[in-house]
Design a protein around this nucleic acid. Structure first.
Lengths: 229, 229
DNA sequence: ACAAAAGTGTTCCTAATACACCCATGA
DNA sequence: TCATGGGTGTATTAGGAACACTTTTGT
């Protein structure tokens, strides 16, 4: 094997695709670029990996710095490394996939006064994006839909207490299809994935029971599906 | 976002976990290190990503240089990036997952005379490994078993023509469990994943029909399983 | 004729789907 | 009393699992 010094080194960055559900729509967090290249275009939050930190740490750090978000579900998505993907030079980017419960987002993040301009965009109406970030989001979306169907990762998008209708709406929003209420509830219960609380949520109609997520059962599949190679 | 020059850059490498089936056993390709650190320990084939090539290209190039293998199934596995994973300094490694049909391996690769010493090791009897390569292999194995159950990736480990018993043995070897012959064949046929040829393989018993893989149907699941989060 | 692997169907059971009405509350 | 979403059960169907014997060939 060759020596480390023999090679010009690429820069290594992380980019994070953060999803949340707001007003029944699936949203991605974007940041407006303040400089060239792609000045004033939107891009994913992210930044360079420091020489003494793990990529995962870099992702968490950048998210906190840029958006204030720190309590979220994070997993590695894919490493994008085509030589021409960044006009500034060789940048290899380790992309991460993240989910946050929108009720935990601080006002600063949804809002107006940070140095960086940030915003949540509906996945079906994304603006033009810098670099290959469109491709990264597309990949992340695929992963999200896929994971939702056979893991219990969806709970990461809900507050601690939620109604079964909340949960079903979340599935319907992300998968883009209507689900049968009775079958959905039957399955959620049968899997032991949720647990009743004694609390209710009120509205101008019959109050709904609140449930919590049982971590114990989180590895069960919600729906078994074929996998696209 | 900060400037590229502001950061010390890590080295970026690729490591490839190449699986094959030999004599009914699942094997991984390893290379003996010729220098420190970890001199004389076995490690995964791999090397540094050049400044103008994609990581996938680097993986293919290194495999060809080190082992002569060039016709294989390759997909990105995971990026390992803990700061302390390489004692020489900061090296982030993009791991790849590869499958080869053992009948396509050139003698030089299975053999003795290359500059590098290389060998195929039974996954159940791995030697001590350099760096975090044990962990990488464990991760790759998990991926292999997982993919085998819900994609048709197993064909990458067989020659173009094979018997259904070959295919079943492959599944049994990798999954580590006996499968029912009738159910297995029924499913393989029902999925339209294989196609009869007019050829047979002979032995001192009833000859077996040879089949080929139908690429068309490759996305179907072989067996639907629960997913471990 | 025997050894060795190839090949083949049916029954049972579980899990997914389809489907429609009553309930509890606030206004 | 009405509007709104909450909550519930059954019948049908499809797919997975269990299971044993006959066939074809070489020696």
């Amino acid at each position: 094997m060759d020596k480390l010094e023999d090679y010009k080194r690429p820069s290594v960055a992380v980019d994070i695709v953060v999803f949340t559900i707001m007003h029944g729509r699936l949203k991605v967090l974007l940041i407006k670029r303040g400089r060239e290249p792609f000045k004033d275009l939107w891009c994913l939050p992210g930044g360079f990996v420091r020489i003494d930190e793990s990529p995962e740490n870099a992702a968490l750090r950048e998210l906190k710095e840029e958006t204030g978000i720190k309590d979220l579900y994070l997993e590695q998505l894919y490493t994008f490394g085509k030589p021409e993907r960044d006009p500034r030079g060789r940048v290899i980017s380790i992309a991460y996939f993240a989910l946050v419960d929108s009720t935990k987002i601080k006002p600063a993040v949804t809002g107006e006064e940070g140095i960086k301009k940030i915003g949540w965009f509906d996945v079906d109406f994304l603006p033009d994006l810098a670099f290959d970030h469109k491709e990264i989001i597309t990949y992340a979306l695929k992963r999200l839909r896929y994971k939702l169907e056979y893991t219990a990762v969806g709970f990461e998008l809900l507050p601690d207490k939620f109604t079964l209708t909340d949960l079903q709406k979340l599935y319907e929003t992300i998968l883009g299809e209507k689900l049968d209420k009775r079958n959905f509830r039957k399955k959620a219960m049968a899997m032991g994935i949720v647990e009743k609380t004694r609390e209710q949520r009120k509205g101008s109609h019959r109050p709904a029971l609140l449930y919590t997520f049982r971590k114990k059962a989180s590895s069960s599949a919600f729906k078994q599906v074929k996998f696209e190679k």
